[in-house]
Computed example of a mutant assay.
Amino acid sequence: PPFWLGLMLIILFSVTLGMFPVSGYGETLEEKIAHLVLPSVTIALSLSTVLTRSLRAAMVEGLRSDVATAARARGMPERVVFWRHVVPNSMVPTINLLAINIGWLIGGTVVIESVFAIPGIGQLLVRAIFSRDYMVVQGVAMMLACATVLINLIADIVTVAADPRVKL
C-alpha cells in the first residue's frame, strides 16, 4: 500500500541516507521540490506496477496479433512493426486503465499527504472530517469528483486521438 511504501522510502532515503527531508513542505522553491520528491515517487511507484503489467500484457498480445503477423509478412522490420502497430494499439487499454485508477490515485494522495505531512487538499479533507465541518467535506468531495470526471473525459479524448476506430 502507498502509506507503507511512503514509510519505507522515508526510512531509507530520509533517515538512513539523509538525502531528502522527512516531512513538511519547505520554504524556498528548492526546499519545496526536495520535500515533494519522496511523495511523488511513492505515488508513482504505487500506480506504476498496475500500469506496467497492463501495458506489458497488451504488448505481448499485440506482438502475437494478426496485424503484427501481416506486417511481418509484408517484410517490415521488427522495429517498425513494434513502433507502428504494437505500441499504438497497446496504449489504448493502458490509457483507459490510468483513467480508471485516477480515483484511486486521488484517494492515495490524501493518505500520502498525511504520511509526509504536506499541507494540501487531503490534509484539508482529513481536518474537516475530524472537526465535523460538513460543508468543507462536501466541497472537497465535489471538487475531487469533478476532477476525476474531467480526467476521465480527457482520457477518453486521448483514446479517440490514439485509436481512430474508437468514437465518442
Rank of each mutant, 00 (worst) to 15 (best):
A161Q: 13
A141S: 14
S48E: 12
S54P: 00
R79V: 10
A71M: 04
P164A: 00
V166I: 15
V81C: 01
R74Y: 11
R64Y: 00
V110I: 14
I10C: 00
I43K: 00
V137L: 05
G108K: 05
F13W: 06
A68T: 00
P88W: 12
F116D: 11
T109R: 00
S131L: 06
A155S: 14
G139C: 08
T69L: 06
I157C: 08
I118M: 12
E78Q: 05
L168S: 09
D163H: 11
Q138V: 15
M135D: 08
P39K: 01
A162N: 06
P93M: 00
V110E: 02
I106E: 11
L144S: 12
N152K: 12
V149E: 08
D133A: 06
T148G: 12
V136K: 12
I106R: 14
A34D: 06
T16C: 05
V15T: 02
P119C: 05
L12S: 08
S46V: 06
V126I: 11
V149L: 14
Q138C: 14
T42K: 02
A34S: 09
Y134C: 03
T109G: 13
T42G: 03
L47M: 13
K32T: 05
A34L: 09
G122Y: 04
I95L: 14
S65L: 03
G107A: 13
T159F: 11
K167D: 01
S14R: 00
I112W: 03
R64Q: 05
V87E: 02
M19V: 09
V111T: 14
L55C: 02
A128L: 07
E61M: 00
S48G: 15
A73R: 05
R127A: 14
S14M: 03
N101G: 08
L97I: 14
S23M: 06
Q123S: 12
W83Q: 01
R72S: 10
A44L: 14
E78K: 00
P119R: 10
V15R: 00
S40N: 07
A71F: 02
Q138K: 10
L12D: 03
A73E: 05
I106M: 15
Q138N: 14
L125A: 11
R165L: 07
T52W: 01
A70H: 01
L168F: 15
I33G: 08
N89Q: 07
V41M: 11
V149G: 09
I154M: 13
Q123L: 11
R72C: 01
T52S: 06
